[in-house]
Amino acid sequence: MDWARRIELFTVVVAAVVAVVGLWYSNVQTRQANEQARDDRALAKEGQITDRYTAAVGNLGEDKMDVRLGGIYALQRIMQDSHRDQPTIANVLATYIRTHAAKPPAKGQDVAADVQAAFTVLAARDTTRDGTFLLDLHGAKLPNVTLVLGDSEAALDKANLSGADLSRAYLPDAKLRGTSLSGTNLRDANLSGADLSRAFLPDAKLRDADLPDAKMRDAYLREADLRGADLSDANLLGADLFGADLNGADLSGADLRGADMVKGQTDSSITDSDTQLPWEPR
């Protein structure tokens, strides 16, 4: 091969190497630019969320009801947009309720609209994003509070509602599994179809409460006041009812197999042929 041919071939090889290196470098620059742009967008979004959060929390302290409501619903939207911020926002809303519902409403009045809204937002949240957050509404005065969530069920599992006033509350199909309701006032509450499995209800006031089809398996109901409660078709398998007052309670179709209670405790209750008592095996 003559020198001219060699030089030509060498030139072609060098040109190819330069082209490959150039393409690689261009790809690296493009990737870095895309990563930088992505980081910039993330920072911008984080800044926007921070600004939205600050504004929403600020609205919670305003005097006007409509401004406070706007702040609560703005926080709900942030929870939906930023999953990692949900535990913080949920804690803010729970604190808001405990603070603004520390005293019962004036006679003849229902729970304030902002407290009702915060309660609804918390009950409607996606609990899979809670992290270590546990809902704490102990002692909150929430008589007549209402939850209507369409196809969703109120998410109150493992919440601390001990000592709260939920009298006449409307909580059908609510999820209250493992929830602490020690001494809670649930008189005349509507808990039809609610799931109270393993709930802790010692000394709870459930007089005249509606609990048909409720799931109360392994619930702790020692010394609970269940006078006149509608427990028809309720699942009370393995429930601890020792000392509970069941005078006038409707136990038609209820399943109390394995329940901890004494014979004669249901003598003043309403039972039928479908009622399954712990001392009457089937």
Score class of each variant (00 low, 15 high):
E8I: 06
T11P: 00
V12K: 15
V13H: 07
V14Y: 01
A16H: 06
A19W: 11
V20T: 06
V21W: 08
Y25A: 13
S26Q: 09
S26P: 03
N27L: 12
N27F: 14
N27G: 11
N34G: 07
E35R: 08
A37W: 14
D40V: 11
R41M: 10
R41W: 11
R41Q: 10
A42P: 13
Q48M: 12
T50S: 14
R52M: 13
A56T: 03
G58L: 00
G61R: 09
E62W: 05
E62N: 14
D63P: 01
D66V: 07
D66K: 10
D66I: 03
D66Q: 11
V67A: 08
V67K: 05
R68E: 00
G71M: 02
I72P: 00
A74S: 13
R77Y: 08
I78A: 11
M79C: 13
Q80N: 14
H83E: 14
D85C: 01
T88D: 14
I89V: 12
L93P: 04
T95E: 05
T95P: 02
T95M: 07
T95L: 04
Y96S: 06
I97F: 06
I97D: 01
I97K: 09
R98Q: 11
T99A: 12
A101C: 10
K103V: 02
K103W: 00
K103P: 01
P105W: 02
K107D: 05
G108S: 02
Q109R: 02
V111H: 06
A112S: 12
A112Y: 01
A112V: 04
A113S: 12
D114V: 03
V115D: 15
Q116Y: 00
Q116L: 04
A117H: 03
V121R: 13
A123P: 02
A123C: 04
A124C: 08
T127Q: 08
R129W: 07
T132G: 06
F133V: 09
D136S: 13
L137A: 04
H138W: 03
A140S: 08
A140E: 03
L142D: 01
P143V: 01
N144I: 03
N144E: 15
N144G: 03
T146R: 12
L149T: 10
G150C: 07
